[in-house]
């Protein structure tokens, strides 16, 4: 700027030079970003386009982009097709996971923000640490815990009791696995949400005679809502696509929708049908997410009315 101020002719010529430089800078930036943008674009779009193309291909063929049929979708919507059962199980378990996690994660998130003080960081690490271990390994660990003569059953028998409950290979233990796996994905957005609640506001409400429940309902919950809802959305989207819990802990006592997609791509070798199913599930989750986000007025919830 000093150079410009000292320039002998600070009029139109300097202005146009600056504009030119500005334009050139932008174009250099855009050019530099282009390879990465193209790479990301291809990486993101190519699989989606391929899946979308396959969804309209002749069943049990590899004629992607060279054939067009709606047979795959007709098969899925055929009333005799029981794939809706898998869809219901996935949706139901995902909703239950979200509901249970909301109740479990809220007190922990509250504690991390308001109660645990300098221990918060360490406690957070405890919740993050399992994410460094493969999900399958952790789930097999739970199998060893719950299995007959395993950690739980064996310990109870050693203590002279009748042994542990038979919970393995049931839909209930599948739900447990999902709650366990997705806890961090609910906890941390919720913790951030609760961090948005100004302590002064809570103190002021208390000074003005508001009760605990009133403060929670009128101040904490609305102000923390963005974090809570983002946590719920994230957990739901992850949980509806979950498959390892139903396979490893649940012993396939139920078949979830992502497992149906996997079967179509492997043993059935019906890539078009699997793709059609994947497209339907993607659209369902996408529509649900957009609907939820359209109902969320983040500005209003953040108090910027």
């Amino acid at each position: 700027m000093a150079d410009l101020a000292l320039a002998p002719a600070p009029g139109a010529a300097a202005e146009s030079a600056r504009q030119l430089r500005h334009a050139r800078m932008l174009s250099v930036g855009a050019r530099c970003a282009l390879p990465v943008a193209i790479l990301l674009g291809i990486g993101f779009l190519a699989p989606l386009v391929a899946i979308f193309g396959y969804a309209f291909a002749t069943p049990r063929s590899f004629d992607v982009f060279t054939s067009f049929t709606l047979t795959n979708f007709a098969t899925l919507f055929d009333p005799s097709n029981t794939v809706w059962l898998s869809f219901l199980w996935s949706c139901g378990l995902a909703l239950l996971t979200v509901a249970i996690l909301a109740v479990i994660a809220y007190p922990i998130a509250y504690g991390l923000n308001m109660v645990f003080g300098r221990w918060s960081a360490l406690i957070s690490v405890f919740f993050v640490f399992p994410l460094f271990v493969s999900e399958n390994v952790r789930l097999y660990g739970w199998v060893l815990f719950f299995i007959k003569n395993g950690v739980l059953d064996g310990t109870l028998k050693w203590l002279g009791l009748s042994g542990g409950p038979e919970v393995l290979y049931t839909p209930g233990v599948t739900l447990f696995g999902m709650v366990y796996t997705y806890l961090p994905f609910m906890l941390f957005p919720m913790t951030l949400g609760l961090a948005l609640v100004p302590r002064d506001l809570v103190d002021a409400a208390r000074d003005l005679g508001a009760g605990r429940l009133f403060i929670w309902r009128e101040i904490e919950l609305p102000l923390a809502m963005p974090g809570i809802l983002i946590g719920m959305l994230l957990t739901f989207v992850l949980a509806i696509g979950a498959t390892a819990e139903a396979k490893i802990l649940g012993g396939q006592s139920i078949i979830v929708i992502s497992h149906d997609i996997e079967i179509a791509f492997t043993y059935s070798q019906n890539w078009p049908l699997g793709s059609a199913l994947a497209v339907l599930v993607t659209f369902f989750i996408g529509a649900l997410t957009l609907f939820a986000l359209s109902k969320l007025d983040l500005d209003r919830m953040l108090g910027r009315r």
Binding site: R60, N81, T82, V83, L85, S86, W89, P171, Q252, S253, I254, I255, D260, I263, Y267, S268, N270
Partner: peptide, 16 residues
Amino acid sequence: YDKALDLMNAAKRLRG
């Protein structure tokens, strides 16, 4: 095989 596998997959879904 394809027909048999479809029937078997449908049977699996009725486990739950």
